[in-house]
């Protein structure tokens, strides 16, 4: 076999592995979210399908959703409506390319890994706008516009917070960033940066308290009001795939990635990632939702200046040695 063909084959296998991992992991995270919320609310959560803890519930739900009738509303923009969930899922899967699960366990160690991650995660909002526009529903449209306005308010701070880490590590490659944290995790050097990144991450993932695009008490279900069955399931899976990818990126940038004593690196990586995820879930089941303009004002008036100052100070300190 020639070399490019072999590489293509290996890339294909890696891609299939990532795809399988993303889907299974998303199903697990949905189950986890339901269990965490149930514990917080003194409920049981799913218990019947897959006893004793209902661990097969989400798989059953996914199967049920796959068999449901595929409804495209009359007057919908068919192409955008159909493509939107796929775009969201693609953007979620693409993020996994640069996530280092362990030493050597990365799909592709890009030189511009962080920049790539920032660019790919920005794709998600296109899908939401497509979904909102394509649905021909007013609630969906308002939800889509909200997600667009939300994106411009947090994206800059998110990237600035990532940049301060890049300055510290002196590299845009995710693997090199993790290796640069062998002595001290960047969260110790960048507590403010981590806070900014985490808040902006919650906004990017459309999670409470920033779940404005799908605010169900206001917009019914926001951009995915008209979605049902398989397409809705893909939205849902992509949401949780994004949650994992975003948290994994937070671990890579701030929490030392796979590094840690005693346990194998992969275990450390997953432990940290799930910790970040559980904190995000905990926040979601504690806080009310902010208003769109409050998020914008938080993004521009608080996060952005703080991120700029953080970046400036970091740059100065690194320059000064």
């Amino acid at each position: 076999m020639s070399k490019p063909l072999l590489e293509l084959l290996i890339a294909g296998i890696k891609f299939a592995l990532v795809l399988g991992f993303v889907s299974v992991n998303a199903l697990f995270l949905i189950w986890l979210e339901r269990k965490v919320s149930a514990r917080i609310q003194n409920r049981m959560g799913p218990i019947y399908v897959g006893r004793p803890q209902g661990w097969l519930q989400t798989a059953a739900d996914a199967l049920k959703l796959l068999t449901k009738e595929d409804i495209i509303p009359a007057g919908a923009d068919r192409l955008t409506f159909v493509v939107a969930p796929a775009v969201l899922f693609t953007s979620a899967v693409l993020l996994f390319v640069v996530i280092p699960f362990g030493p050597g366990l990365i799909v592709r160690d890009l030189k511009l890994g962080v920049a790539y991650a920032a660019a790919v995660s920005g794709l998600a909002v296109i899908s939401l706008v497509m979904a909102g526009w394509g649905s021909n529903n007013k609630y969906s449209l308002v939800g889509a516009l909200r997600s667009a306005s939300q994106m411009i308010s947090y994206e800059v701070s998110l990237i600035l917070a990532m940049l301060s880490v890049v300055i510290l590590a002196g590299s845009l490659s995710t693997v090199e960033i993790v290796e640069a944290q062998s002595r001290i995790w960047f969260i110790a050097l960048q507590p403010l940066g981590f806070l900014i990144y985490f808040i902006a991450l919650l906004a990017e993932l459309n999670r409470a308290p920033f779940d404005l695009p799908e605010a169900e008490s206001e917009l019914v279900a926001g951009y995915n009001t008209e979605y049902s069955g398989m397409r809705w399931a893909i939205f849902f899976l992509a949401e949780y795939a994004n949650l994992f990818a975003g948290s994994a990126l937070a671990v890579t940038l701030f929490l030392g990635g796979w590094q840690g004593p005693w346990l194998p690196p992969v275990v450390w990586f997953f432990l940290k990632t799930f910790l970040v995820i559980v904190v995000a879930m905990w926040l979601r089941w504690t806080l009310p939702r902010v208003r769109p303009d409050q998020l914008t004002s938080l993004g521009w008036k608080l996060l952005l200046p703080a991120a700029l100052v953080n970046l400036g100070v970091t740059g100065f300190l690194v320059l000064a040695g």
């Binding site: 149930a38 003194n42 049981m44 218990i47 905990w282 089941w285 504690t286 806080l287």
Partner: peptide
């Protein structure tokens, strides 16, 4: 205030479920 809220939900998390099955 957000930390206080998180504290409350955390304490609740330690309680057993009240569900009657």
């Amino acid at each position: 205030s957000i930390l206080v809220g998180l504290g409350i939900t955390f304490r609740r998390m330690l309680r057993p479920p009240v569900t009657l099955r």
